[in-house]
Design a protein around this nucleic acid. Structure first.
Length: 375
RNA sequence: GGAGGGGUUCCCGAGUGGCCAAAGGGAACAGACUGUAAAUCUGUCGUCGUAUGACUUCGGAGGUUCAAAUCCUCCCCCCUCCA
């Protein structure tokens, strides 16, 4: 039995790595995609459906769970895993992204962030220590440190100042929960906006801290794909090679593959679940908007090459009907499919790396998946 | 038979002389969504490939007026109540 936090690289193919990470609730086979379950639920899915789709780990959110139902309540109820009946690993995000996305409701101070609840407007305060304490209560397997996700377009001065704070908070987070003091891992988050030197500085400073993994934050915040890929390519090499690397909030299938090509091991994104609820479904022939009129009489499965229960049993015509009618089953079936698709993509990615064919795989997939659906 | 109400662009429904191709909603047709304030948002929605442009629309036919979905006359149809 490997030691908690052990990260083993099995194969490399270019910069792409096929590795594994030991967590308290099992070993993650990477590259891995983590479906997002912000409020202790991957929206519309039951845990067994997630399990059947092949999820190894899911994401939860500190900010949301603190506000509702409350981290102390979750602790009393046996922790997040027991609460939601998910016994595989959970990574909890710190609320750093909400500092960014709920900008109108918050104020950043050296000590932490004061903010108003998006639910009822009540006032709260997050310090790095508080956020770790919340994640202790939740009992996640991987904790993220509180950071400031800098908005796209922030100038150099702002970004540099923000980074200083983020680094300071990272140090305080590790002090609040020293390595080995429990069975939770802790990842630091590289910021620095779209300035290469700040990215490098951020990574260097975080390396001094004894984290179990490193995340790239502050990407996919409104920049162009080209800019994101460029920042990804410049930032990834700054991260320690023999540690887990996590690209936060990314992304589209082709973005994930780009991440893998740059040596990223972990990904999360709301896209498969949100898009499912909004009628966009992923197939190996490209994206499909299931509401389109052309599917009204289409008796074929959504994707004949997909093994998910949705594609095994239902026609496009039925899926379209459910979506158009806003039937509850629509959200569930669509989400089952999209999550299955993303996880399947990762399985194929791992296989491709093992076989030393990742580049070919990526090139083929990227062209196919980014293309709009053609019959 | 009598009294009253009403027919508006695919549907519901506002509009009662010019600012009306006509509010609003729905439907329809497209698009977006990247560490989830999202089962959300955006666009199009009479015709003319585009248009500050032209043309055709507000039950039907006539009429008044510089100008009519809006006023007048007749006709057709629908609803309610009384007989």
């Amino acid at each position: 039995m490997s030691k908690l936090g052990t990260f083993t690289i099995h194969t490399t193919d270019g910069k792409a790595r096929r590795a594994s990470l030991v967590t308290a609730r099992g070993v993650l086979e990477t590259p891995v995609f983590m479906p997002v379950g912000t409020a202790a639920t991957v929206k519309s899915l039951a845990p067994w459906e997630l399990h059947d789709a092949g999820a190894q780990i899911i994401l939860g959110n500190t900010y949301h769970l603190y506000l509702r139902p409350g981290d102390e309540r979750i602790a009393r109820l046996g922790g997040l895993h027991q609460f939601m009946d998910w016994d595989k690993p959970i990574l909890t995000d710190s609320g750093g992204f909400q500092v960014f996305s709920l900008a109108a409701l918050r104020q950043i101070e050296p000590e932490g962030v004061s903010f108003q609840s998006h639910i009822d407007g009540s006032r709260h305060f997050f310090s790095p220590e508080k956020v770790i304490s919340i994640q202790n209560n939740l009992g996640s397997d991987i904790m993220m440190v509180l950071d400031e996700c800098v908005p796209y377009g922030a100038d150099y001065d702002y970004t540099a100042k923000s980074l200083k704070l983020t680094t300071e908070w990272a140090k305080r987070s590790r002090i609040a929960y020293p390595k080995g003091s429990g069975n939770q891992l802790m990842f630091g988050i590289v910021q620095g906006g779209f300035y290469a030197d700040l990215r490098q500085q951020s990574a260097e400073e975080l390396k001094e801290i004894d984290f179990d993994g490193f995340a790239l934050g502050g990407l996919s915040v409104g920049e162009s794909t080209e800019e994101m890929y460029e920042m990804l390519a410049t930032s990834a090499p700054f991260l320690p090679e023999h540690m887990p690397r996590y690209l936060m909030g990314v992304g589209k299938p082709e973005d994930i593959l780009e991440g893998v090509a740059n040596g990223i091991d972990m990904f999360d994104c709301v896209l498969p679940t949100r898009n499912a609820r909004n009628g966009t479904l992923y197939t190996w022939q490209g994206k499909v908007n299931i509401k389109r009129a052309e599917f009204a009489d289409d008796d074929s499965p959504l994707d004949p090459n997909c093994t998910c229960p949705c594609c095994q049993r239902f026609s496009r015509a039925y899926l379209r009907h459910l979506y158009i009618g806003r039937e509850l089953l629509s959200y569930r079936l669509n989400t089952i499919h999209n999550v299955h698709f993303f996880l399947d993509l990762m399985t194929r990615t791992r296989q491709a790396i093992e076989q030393g064919e990742f580049n070919t795989f990526k090139t083929e997939m990227a062209t196919r998946l980014s293309a709009p659906y053609e019959r």
